[in-house]
């Protein structure tokens, strides 16, 4: 079989044990966390008998391994539990929030990644000159700014003072109908998105792309093709970039894996109704089923993203296929 196909199959098969371990860990974490779920479910004013009835009704008196089996069984049927806070199945709650987070994070990341990588490659092509220095120092400065502080600063200047953008939320109340709604969402997304791009994605990808290109341009094989009379443009585009992009893809996978849970601060600052605010509130309100569901979705996301990043790396770099 072709080396690449074989690698993808092997790599995908590794997912099964990883997901199983994640599920069990997820279950254990909630079991060992403080507080009695039966007490929470029955309510603060419930009598001892009522608490016991609740415990039996939800099966919380059964041995741990039975609880785990029924948890896994429910998961297989797509049942992630019920949220008392939202009075809805956990899956419904998550499905409302996941797209909001992905919209914000993927848009910012794809834009930031592209801009950052292009700037990084450009800086590398001006290696050691003023442009390179300015880009490097600027990106490092932005990267050092705390995300929530920069977010608040943007709110203060562009939302409260200049009133160019809304200061929080997801969509305006008056925005009805597809197009108006989409425009309103985009409008609300500008400030959180700019925050994420400037403080995270652009600096990160600028620096990794620059470092990677600079390193590759000093490799012997680059001198070899240059000395073989390959035009300089092709030396850079065909021989250097293909090698230099490998660490960028790996870094993209790493950041993409944080997509669902990595922007809690930004979402909180801008009251963006995504996974970050959901998890934040679930912790405050001890909404354990939602928290477990969020962990589960986040874990599965991480595993899938790493799979895709690894496959991309293997496509780009044949050496990985045999690892």
């Amino acid at each position: 079989m072709h080396g690449l196909h074989w690698y993808i199959l092997r790599r995908a098969a590794q997912l099964v044990p990883v997901v199983l371990v994640v599920l069990v860990l997820n279950f254990v974490i909630v079991k060992v966390s403080p507080g009695d779920p039966a007490l929470t479910l029955a309510g603060y004013w419930a009598t001892k008998e009522q608490v016991e009835t609740t415990r039996q009704r939800w099966g919380l008196d059964r041995p741990l391994h039975e609880q785990l089996t029924s948890y896994l069984g429910n998961l297989l049927r797509g049942d992630l539990g019920f949220s008392n806070h939202f009075h809805r199945p956990v899956l419904d709650v998550l499905m409302m929030r996941v797209p909001n987070t992905l919209l914000l994070v993927l848009t910012s990341m794809l834009l930031g990644m592209t801009v950052g990588t292009v700037l990084g490659v450009f800086a590398a092509s001006r290696y050691g000159r003023t442009t390179d220095l300015v880009l490097s120092v600027t990106s490092l400065s932005f990267y050092s700014i705390p995300v929530f502080w920069f977010g608040l600063l943007l709110v203060l200047v562009f939302a409260l003072n200049l009133k160019w953008f809304p200061f929080a939320g997801f969509v305006g109340i008056g925005a009805q109908g597809g197009l108006a709604r989409a425009a309103s969402v985009a409008w609300h997304m500008v400030l959180p998105s700019v925050t994420l791009m400037l403080c995270l994605y652009i600096p990160v990808f600028l620096r990794i792309a620059r470092a990677s290109v600079v390193e590759v341009m000093h490799e012997d094989y680059i001198t070899t093709v240059r000395a073989a009379g390959i035009p300089e443009r092709l030396v850079f585009l065909r021989h250097a970039l293909r090698n230099a992009i490998v660490p960028v893809v790996q870094m993209a996978g790493l950041w993409m894996s944080h997509a669902l849970t990595g922007v809690v601060l930004t979402e909180t600052v801008f009251s963006w109704p995504g996974m970050g605010t959901l998890m934040y509130n679930a912790i405050i309100q001890r909404d354990y089923p939602v928290l477990m569901g969020a962990f589960l979705i986040a874990a599965v996301w991480v595993v899938l993203v790493f799979l895709i990043a690894d496959i991309l790396t293997a496509v780009l770099d044949p050496r990985v296929r045999y690892a």
Binding site: E219, D220, N243, L316, P318
Partner: peptide, 11 residues
């Protein structure tokens, strides 16, 4: 060039 180990583009 010196060092044939790294003289060929690995990809």
């Amino acid at each position: 060039f010196q060092g044939a180990m790294n003289a060929l583009n690995p990809v």
